[in-house]
Design a protein around this nucleic acid. Structure first.
Length: 507
RNA sequence: GCGGAAGUAGCUCAUUUGGUAGAGCGAAAGCCUUCCAAGCUUUAGGUGGCGGGUUCGAGCCCCGUCUUCCGCUCCA
């Protein structure tokens, strides 16, 4: 494990040194858990996205894509359950290190005060026997009145604080009531924090009538709310899918492990709409299909595993993750969820619009069930990077770092290199470059020895280097050098494009 | 979020008890011309993460803050 972490650190610094990933706002000391993709990283990321899009949309006649906006109607997040599920004020006890819901602590305190009143009532009832008048007792007894007044004051403050989201006041109530931690018994509390994983912002420039919008915490809802539009205008027949890639935002309390858990990240999702009752078949189908997609990248099957969920989310009746073995263990890379008709039904309810499908075979209307495949683009990027990174010992004893990125994903497909920067070789090289450029991401380099240039391209995963020498000027043949094997042979200039095309084809 | 550690050039790291920062690699320009990083010359690049304090004097000591890493916690 320690060795793995070592390699992981090397991958992170390699990613920076060779222009894959930079920390966001680095010259301002950085922004926690936010990263930028650099010149090579953006190519790799775009290639992964395109590879996913082609295998999901282009290769399936019953799947289409959309690109919905990040801003959506705020009610969507009420319907989806995001607003309610994540709005708790939390507080930690510094001594026991336990975390509590601040509102629950206060409610428990109020209950205890009520219990005290009840005890007084019981005692008095025993004392007075049959003559006891509860109503009269509670409205006149000094102690009870004192408790009652306290409860009322705290309750009023509490309700107001919760309504206005005044967290400092919530903390103050806990302090004023001298509430202690049930575990440590101490009153050493942290500040109260709102645990809401959605980022919010304002729409409308005048603050009084501005409305609160959320940055979407998942891309899925953009598909659900467009379900009917796409189904009608695309004349889609069930079963069919809608795919989308895009940014999502989560205000994670702890976001770490490089680009594995970021506050701003990109998802690649596909929601597959099926006839109710057939969802488990499709669930199994997509589990297999998606794993095959990962394996097609050439990463060995041992690096992956299924992780079925025991505890299901409120919307699901089956869920399974595809996990990848990162340096820090097996972690979720993609989720396959059977979301039932939860989302569409919720949107029906909240929007008042029917989101149904008329199935001509069954001759009936129903709300479709949904199988979701949701993969993290940044995590896939990290997977590719982790698996590609290789420190290799060569026969002559020297070492090289080579990124064995699958050709279809490599940032640069081909480096065009004149053997020496004179005798007309640069001119010839640029001539070849201009032929390749429209179809392939290429890079021209003439600085430094040829060996050094090969190694530089190994380090960013360029699968092919084409070298132009004096002989080329005579016979129009170049040396093509393969990244992984380091083998080289001569091919005619006209064959370069063909070779590259074979190497980066979608299988 | 809590606890621990760290932050010096693009990278890896020096700078013995506090006395105003160096190297290697890398980069750029030029020379050389050689199919697997290794030749020569020159140049650029650091208000020592940032802010404050102690001191005649702080990269070094103290406080705060930001970021990263490790552990815990959390995680539709």
């Amino acid at each position: 494990m320690a060795q793995n972490e070592d390699v992981f650190k090397k991958i992170i610094s390699h990613a920076k040194e060779y222009g894959f990933v930079f920390q966001s706002s680095e010259i301002y000391d950085g922004l926690s858990a936010v990263y930028d993709y650099a010149q090579n990283g953006v190519e790799l990321k775009n290639n992964i996205k395109q590879y996913w899009w082609k295998s999901m949309v282009q290769m399936h006649e019953n799947i289409v894509g959309i690109d919905s906006a990040i801003f959506m109607h705020p009610t969507i997040w009420k319907a989806s359950g995001h607003v309610d599920a994540f709005n708790d004020p939390l507080i930690d006890n510094k001594d026991s290190k336990k975390r509590y819901r601040a509102d629950v602590l206060i409610e428990e305190y109020l209950e205890k005060q009520n219990d005290k009143i009840e005890k007084e009532v019981e005692k008095a009832a025993k004392r007075f026997g049959d003559a006891f008048d509860r109503q009269q007792f509670v409205s006149t007894n000094a102690r009870v009145l004192e408790y009652r007044a306290k409860i009322d004051t705290v309750h009023t403050r509490f309700v107001k604080a919760m309504e206005t989201s005044d967290l400092a006041e919530v903390k103050k109530i806990i302090e004023d009531c001298e509430i202690v931690c049930p575990v440590s018994g101490s009153r050493n509390w942290t500040e109260v924090r709102q645990f809401n994983l959605m980022f919010s912002t304002q729409m409308g420039s005048v603050s009084e009538d501005a409305s609160t919008l959320y940055l979407r915490p998942e891309t899925a809802q953009g598909i659900f709310v467009n379900y009917l539009n796409v189904q009608k205008t695309g004349r889609m027949k069930i079963p069919f899918g809608i795919a989308q890639t895009g940014k999502a935002f989560r205000n994670e309390i702890v976001a770490r492990q490089f680009i594995f858990r970021m506050r701003e990240f990109e998802q690649m999702e596909m929601q597959f709409f099926v006839r109710p009752g057939t969802e488990m078949e499709w669930f199994e189908y997509w589990k297999k299909t998606r794993l095959d997609w990962h394996l097609a990248l050439g990463i060995p099957v041992e690096k992956y595993r299924y992780h079925p969920h025991d505890k299901l989310a409120h919307y699901a009746n089956a869920a399974c993750d595809i996990e990848f073995e990162f340096a820090f263990g097996f972690k979720e890379l993609e989720g396959i969820h059977s979301r039932t008709d939860f989302d569409l039904s919720q949107h029906q309810k909240f929007s008042g619009k029917k989101l149904q499908y008329f199935d001509p075979e069954l001759n009936e209307n129903y709300v479709p069930y949904v199988i979701e495949t949701s993969i993290g683009l940044d995590r896939t990027f990290l997977t590719v990077l982790s698996h590609a990174y290789c420190e290799e010992k060569l026969e002559d004893g020297s070492e090289r770092v080579v990124m064995r990125i699958p050709g279809i994903l490599a940032p640069i497909k081909c480096a065009v290199l004149p053997l020496v920067a004179k005798d007309g070789l640069p001119e010839k090289a640029r001539e070849i470059l201009s032929i390749l450029m429209p179809d392939f991401m290429c890079q021209y380099e003439e600085k430094d020895s040829i060996g050094k240039r090969y190694r530089r391209h190994d380090a960013i995963g360029t699968p092919y280097c084409v070298t132009i020498d004096h002989q080329t000027l005579q016979d129009n043949m170049v040396t093509i050098r393969h990244r992984d094997t380091m083998e080289q042979h001569r091919i005619p200039v006209e064959k370069i494009a063909e070779t590259l095309r074979d190497a980066i084809r979608l299988n």
